[in-house]
């Protein structure tokens, strides 16, 4: 079944909420469409979200990796090059802890950023259906639905007060950039 997308662009929050209601009336739940805004709104403003994420897992895995690499480097270099400095033991654990700590945190940071990209589904440079007015404060409702239902949804969004409704053209990849280009120069 071909799936197509529709983006309703609303001027303000009130009309956007009307758009959400219109989609709800058509039987779409909050999980079926995306809301695009230029800054976060309080949770649940557009209806209850049910998304899950595993962002917390990333820094933990990163920390474990960083710790292991730190342990390997500090342990192995000491064993490979046994040279007494300052009367300290050949295998000195306290300085290792300092470097392992840094390694742990470095990898935790890097993995958190990877997690952010993964969970936000970024990068998406070729992403279609977007309108540059969204970063200016407009609110976008983005719905992916079976191709035959898209026009119905577009009409509903228009009725709810959408200033513009952009339809994804088929085939998607070739025409995808069109709305964005148009917006960039607008």
């Amino acid at each position: 079944m071909a799936v197509s997308g529709v983006l309703g662009v609303f001027k303000d929050l009130d009309t956007a909420i009307a758009g959400v209601d219109a989609l709800n009336e058509l039987g779409y739940t909050r999980a079926d469409f995306e809301v695009l805004t230029n800054a976060p709104y309080p949770e649940g403003t557009f209806g209850e979200e049910h998304g899950m994420h595993r962002l917390g897992l990333f820094p933990l895995v990163g920390a474990a990796c960083g710790f292991s690499v730190g342990l390997l480097i500090t342990g192995a270099t000491q064993m490979a090059f046994p040279l007494v400095t300052g009367g300290k033991p050949l295998f000195s654990i306290p300085p290792m802890i300092i470097i392992m700590y840094e390694g742990t945190l470095l990898a935790a940071v890097i993995f958190t950023v990877i997690g952010l990209l993964f969970e936000s589904r970024l990068p998406r440079l070729g992403s279609n259906l977007y309108d540059p007015r969204i970063t200016a404060g407009y609110i976008g409702l983005l719905l992916h639905a079976p191709a035959e239902k898209v026009s119905e949804a577009a009409a509903a969004l228009r009725r709810a007060g959408a200033e513009d409704v952009i339809l994804e053209e088929q085939p998607a990849p070739a025409a995808a950039k069109a709305p964005q280009r148009k917006g960039a120069s607008a």
Partner: peptide, 16 residues
């Protein structure tokens, strides 16, 4: 990176 301001992206942005 193609950031669109989806609600999920904001959420992840804040948690991260």
């Amino acid at each position: 990176l193609g950031f669109k301001g989806e609600e999920r992206q904001w959420k992840i942005q804040i948690i991260s």
